[in-house]
Simulated assay, not measured.
Amino acid sequence: MLLLKPEPTRRAKEIFQEACCIENMEAKFGRTLSKDEDSVRRFILTQSPILGRIPFIDEIRKEFNKFQKEKVDAILNKLHQVDAIHLDNDKTNIVAAYPFSGSETSHQVYLNRKGFKRVYAMCSIDALGMSFMFNCDVSIESLCIHCGEKIEIEIRDNEIFVLNPKNTVVWYDMEYSCCAATSVCKHTNFFSSEKHYEDWQKGKPIKKGNLLPIQEAFYLGKLFFENRLDN
């Protein structure tokens, strides 16, 4: 029986610490937000798996109808500024509320909790982190970004129970710019093997990042998302 635990390596901890320095992780965890700002952040994150999508802005305004529309919009703009969410150019839709994507991606996640629907993750690390964020079993269906082979991961009790292909690895991109949604998330993906990553990388400019075994990537997902709803 396959049982893979998150592997707390020094490298994964260093990657997380560097991300904390580059990104506004304290805000993403809600620690530097006002009570009202954090209430909106938490509503978006907790409603996304119930709806199977990120809430629409009108739904958020309705939930917080005790606030003036202008206040809700100001809070959403603040969450966008600190990269807790990412709004589209017109600021009429939320396109990312990490770990959730507002559109289809190659990372489909099924959270095994009553009332939850399939969601799309922004990247492979976000997909792996959802089991810790919601403390429930998770099924992930994704693709090798090089060959398109289906990748299946089953997580039970925060351990990987099924991994197909068994040599699946994760490229974690660290070329952050502007916001995670438009930079690192686009390039953080699963590969069916280390060789497929090497084949994919041939002829491309060398990028800043790390190729991670699945257990190390799993631990990184834990660091990013385990306490996302705790404060």
Rank of each mutant, 00 (worst) to 15 (best):
P6G: 05
R10M: 11
R11A: 04
F16P: 08
F16V: 03
A19V: 08
C20S: 02
E23L: 04
M25E: 06
G30S: 05
R31Q: 01
T32A: 05
T32Q: 07
L33G: 01
D36E: 15
E37A: 11
E37C: 07
V40S: 04
F43Q: 10
T46Y: 02
Q47V: 04
I54S: 00
P55N: 00
I57M: 06
E59T: 03
F67S: 02
Q68M: 13
K69G: 09
E70V: 09
D73G: 06
I75F: 12
I75N: 11
K78Y: 06
L79Y: 06
Q81I: 12
D83T: 15
H86D: 15
D90N: 13
K91P: 04
K91N: 14
T92D: 02
A96S: 14
A96Y: 02
A96E: 11
Y98R: 05
Y98W: 11
P99K: 00
S103M: 09
S103D: 07
S103I: 06
E104N: 11
T105W: 09
L111M: 01
N112I: 11
N112R: 14
R113T: 10
R113H: 11
R113D: 08
R118G: 15
R118V: 12
R118C: 14
I125V: 14
I125H: 10
D126K: 03
D126P: 07
A127N: 13
L128M: 03
G129W: 00
G129I: 00
M130H: 05
F132N: 04
F134W: 13
C136A: 08
C136V: 05
S139L: 12
I140G: 12
E141L: 13
E141S: 09
L143C: 13
L143Y: 14
I145W: 15
C147Q: 12
E149T: 15
I151K: 00
D157K: 14
D157Q: 15
E159L: 07
E159R: 10
I160K: 02
F161H: 13
F161P: 07
F161Q: 14
L163W: 00
N164W: 09
N164K: 15
P165F: 08
K166L: 05
K166R: 08
N167V: 03
T168R: 04
W171Y: 07
Y172K: 06
D173A: 02
Y176L: 07
Y176P: 01
S177G: 10
A180Y: 06
A181E: 15
A181V: 12
K186S: 06
H187Y: 09
N189M: 12
H196R: 10
Y197M: 14
E198I: 07
W200G: 11
G203Q: 00
K204M: 09
K204S: 05
P205A: 05
P205T: 08
G209P: 01
G209I: 01
N210A: 12
L211T: 04
L212G: 01
P213I: 11
L220S: 05
L220E: 04
F224D: 05
F225I: 01
N227P: 06
L229H: 04
